[in-house]
């Protein structure tokens, strides 16, 4: 029983990382209305931006968060300009294929620029342990959970208490209606995309810190998990995407308590299938907005 409890807590921590990735993903899909497959590479660029910042400028977490957010947001700008801007009125698969090509381009360029080898991520978090009964939580896990909660709160405020947030929500609900009330839809989508990518970059940095290593291929695996979490949550709902991420993390960890670890991804994706079979619109209650 103790072991299950430990696995549950590990699942929550693991799920928090998925949640952070999924929040960014849902932000992007929510405002652009388009699915992206370049998200994993955006996260990877965020991780490398933080890596070089820690190496050459300052080994402080906050500086790393800013660097990874900024670099990934710039990637978001590129993704928008190349993959989205001219395809909003075209069939959706065009921009989707464009993001696949863009992700290949970025991954290969990263291998050339950063080298193909795995690199050690500098430890910017002083590790300590918090023992609660049989459960041991480390500093990195705590900081990840805190960052997810902090960012979710900040996003909630942004979406609900600011003009920019209201514009984002309006575009999320209906681009045509938003345009009719005078919202610059393209600029709002660009902003939303950069914001989502920035969050993805921060998630990439936290992943690299958590696993203490990074490589140009780090985005591929986690991009899929972000996608799965966002799909489980309903694609465009930020709170439910986060919930989807946490659920996938917990289910993976509890599942592998009973079956070999090789089945880990099986649990994540079987869960996704079940969610989609029972609720094709995802866990979110909103209907009719899945891109």
């Amino acid at each position: 029983m103790e072991y299950i409890l430990i696995q549950f807590v590990n699942g929550l921590c693991q799920g928090s990382i998925y949640a952070l990735m999924a929040i960014g993903y849902a932000s992007i899909v929510g405002v652009t209305g388009l699915v992206t497959f370049a998200y994993g590479e955006v996260m990877m660029i965020g991780a490398f931006a933080a890596y070089y910042t820690f190496q050459y400028f300052a080994d402080q977490l906050l500086v790393g968060i800013l660097a990874s957010f900024a670099a990934a947001a710039c990637m978001g700008f590129l993704v928008y300009k190349i993959c989205y801007e001219r395809f909003f009125d075209k069939p959706r698969h065009i921009s989707l294929i464009c993001t696949i090509g863009f992700s290949m381009l970025v991954k290969n360029l990263a291998q050339i620029l950063f080298g193909a080898n795995t690199k050690a991520m500098p430890s910017v978090i002083q590790n300590f342990f918090l023992d609660i009964g049989p459960v041991r939580i480390n500093a990195v896990q705590l900081i990840i959970v805190a960052t997810v909660i902090g960012l979710s709160g900040a996003l909630y405020l942004l979406f609900n208490k600011t003009q920019a947030g209201i514009r984002l929500r309006a575009v999320n609900q209906s681009r045509q209606a938003a345009a009719l009330v005078g919202i610059n839809v393209k600029r709002t989508i660009l902003f939303g995309n950069c914001l989502g990518c920035g969050i993805g970059g921060t998630a990439g940095m936290l992943l690299a810190i958590y696993y203490q290593s990074l490589s140009p291929t780090i985005g591929s695996t986690f991009g899929n998990k972000a996608f799965a979490s966002a799909v489980a949550g309903g694609m465009t709902s930020i709170p439910w995407a986060a919930g989807g991420g946490v659920l996938i993390g917990v289910i993976e960890n509890i599942g592998t308590a009973f079956l070999p670890n090789s089945y880990r991804d099986v649990f994540a994706f079987v869960f996704l299938f079940i969610v989609l079979l029972l609720r094709p619109e995802g866990l979110s209650k909103k209907e009719g907005i899945r891109p």
Partner: peptide, 20 residues
Amino acid sequence: DEPYTEGEIDFTNVLNKVKN
């Protein structure tokens, strides 16, 4: 005696299982 998938990054899960 626990296997893991080649290319895995997250070892926490399998390590916890063995630690148990």
